[in-house]
Design a protein around this nucleic acid. Structure first.
Lengths: 258, 258
DNA sequence: CGCATCATTGAAGCCCTTCAAGACTTGTGG
DNA sequence: CCACAAGTCTTGAAGGGCTTCAATGATGCG
């Protein structure tokens, strides 16, 4: 089956299909082949680890629902969130080929995860030649997101940093059909991603609420003025390699020089 | 030929061979096959661009000598150095599969670069199955370095940031047989990598000289106390996936669970 | 209800930035 | 060989953004 039962009980497009499409994989057959490898749906509740630091699972982990993150604990007890994971994302592409003990994956909201055994994956990759490049792109995309994060976090003041994180999540969720203006993260999570103290995040969020960018509701993060937020962050989604950007890129590649 | 004429006229191990070994590729035949694709040695003088922003070359660029960087210009005229490139490094692994307009590659010292046409590479990759995974690892390694940079730059005070950058370069150069304690970068370069103002870099460097970590010579960066530098940065080379770490990893992978 | 987690607000202080001016090095042309 | 310019480095002073500490309020869950 291609569908996944949505909250309303209606079948919706499977997040992994959505993800593979955004990676430029148009072959329905190949996406389907990957889907069929998905084993063991497990739900993980908010705050729990999905992949522990220092473990080397024999399978790839795919996020099916919720928001997760790759993070690293610091000596002083703090943590750095390196990447957010949205439904359809592969949470540990890096782990098989070049493992990093220090990085763990955790659920930021209640999550549903699936797994794909490398054994199975390797076999399927041979049969479906377009799957490999799609995974390459997924990995390169992570790098691109990481670089953009470094740029913003290291060079921009707090308000822009926070705005950037919100824009990234908003845009990535929209790309997989989640148009909810509510971003279900705590201010602590925001701080750990933007590398700011929670105290300061509170002030920034307060500022954004005063500007009318976020809903004044004291609880939760709800974007009420998407345009202004994008403008504040000076957000250019190009680095996310969204479908539109992708087709644009193809034109360029055809014209590559030698 | 495997050798490259060194400064003294003696044949030394080719930097690309060294790099491939560090990526776990032990097959001499496969390394050799990649080497034979190297075309067009070009020298680029300090400060010049190797790959311009917004260009899409039909070839992979390999650094053969010198130090280069991938960087991004900011609106305010500043620049962020995302990655350093040492001899043997592939400068634009990301570019073919998921191009990023904004990022350019520039020579930080006088450099010698070679190129490998994707056309040729694709053919060779099919013939030598161990080459693909090695390139995967190279790409994942970049991600790992980028994450570590984000961690240090966003969470550590200036002295540790600078120390980290120096440690990274020192260690990566040692890994390819360059044991020179002199790091031929300007303070401007250091600032662009560590995301600090040049003025502050001067003060930090001054501090490191006072501590005896760097040579007091007013010109240039020369590490005189490697141990203390590593300690200051709290440097753990694990993320660089050095050969020792690699063999350690292999043991772990054999014991992976399911 | 009591407890744990999260959010808020104030106050003090430090780290780094910007601005500004000068010293030193290097390369180039007269 | 000197003069000059351009690039790099150095040092001082003023200011601002963020951190830490500390205490209180709000929310949700057992």
């Amino acid at each position: 089956m291609t569908g996944l039962a949505g909250p309303s009980g209606v079948d919706v497009v499977h997040p992994v299909i959505w993800k593979l499409r955004s990676l430029g994989l148009e072959s329905e057959a190949e996406s389907q082949a990957l889907l069929e490898l998905l084993k063991r749906r497990v739900s993980v509740s908010r705050g729990k680890e999905i992949i522990g630091a220092g473990t080397y699972p024999a399978h790839l982990t795919v996020l099916l629902d919720g928001i997760a993150c790759s993070h690293e604990r610091l000596e002083d007890g703090g943590r750095q969130i390196h990447a957010f994971h949205c439904p359809g994302d592969f949470c540990d592409l890096h782990r098989d080929i070049l493992p990093n003990d220090a990085i763990a994956v955790a659920a930021l909201t209640d999550c549903l995860v699936g797994t794909i055994r490398y054994r199975d994956l390797d076999r399927t990759l041979e049969q479906h030649p377009k799957l490999g490049p799609a995974l390459w792109r997924a990995a390169m995309l992570e790098g691109s997101i990481s670089r953009e994060r470094l740029l913003k976090v290291s060079r921009q003041p707090a308000l822009q940093r926070v705005a950037h994180v919100l824009c990234e999540l908003l845009t990535r969720r929209e790309a997989i059909g989640i148009n909810d203006p509510v971003i279900p993260l705590s201010q602590i999570d925001l701080g750990d991603a933007a590398a700011l103290s929670v105290v300061h995040i509170t002030r920034i969020v307060h500022g954004l609420r005063t500007l009318g960018v976020l809903s004044p509701d004291s609880r939760g993060i709800e974007v009420t003025d998407r345009e202004q937020l994008l403008q504040l962050a000076n957000f250019d989604a190009h680095y996310l390699n969204m479908p539109e950007a992708l087709s644009h890129w193809r034109a360029d590649v055809d014209g590559r020089f030698d």
